[in-house]
């Protein structure tokens, strides 16, 4: 199984943090700075998993997940939703949009890997 993980966050520092951690753990992360870029990247090659932020320009995380779920081949691709807010409403929206689970920012490498392994194996 491919270990390509699409990392979507408008904050370059958070993105690089995630990408660095994933890469060291043997995953193959791909970066996108916003929802639209992420959709384009997913269209090129469907990733095995997606990690996306909520607060982003152009498309919010939830909007991106909704659009992503419309793409053929996205069924079964786990999407992890990142949020700095601990608001249940937002998490439920993300779930409704098609996220498999969520992670509250900030997180450490272990937590991140734990969650990614939880959904990607």
């Amino acid at each position: 199984m491919s270990r390509r993980v699409l990392v979507v966050d408008d904050s370059a520092s958070v993105r690089r943090l995630i990408v660095g951690t994933l890469r060291m753990a043997g995953f193959d992360p791909v970066e996108a700075g916003d929802g639209e870029e992420a959709l384009a990247k997913a269209r090129e090659t469907m990733p095995s998993a997606v990690i996306t932020d909520q607060n982003m320009p152009r498309l919010t995380g939830i909007e991106f997940i909704r659009a992503f779920r419309q793409m053929p081949g996205s069924a079964g691709v786990p999407v992890i939703f990142l949020s700095t807010e601990n608001a249940d409403a937002v998490k439920q929206q993300a779930r409704a949009a098609g996220a498999i689970g969520w992670m509250t920012k900030p997180f450490d490498d272990q937590k991140l890997l734990g969650v990614v392994k939880k959904v990607l194996g």
């Binding site: 998993a49 069924a75 079964g76 691709v77 786990p78 999407v79 098609g98 996220a99 498999i100 939880k118 959904v119 194996g121």
Partner: peptide
């Protein structure tokens, strides 16, 4: 359950 990418095995 598989739709969103869940895998009971994991």
């Amino acid at each position: 359950v598989y739709q969103l990418g869940h895998e009971p095995f994991r």
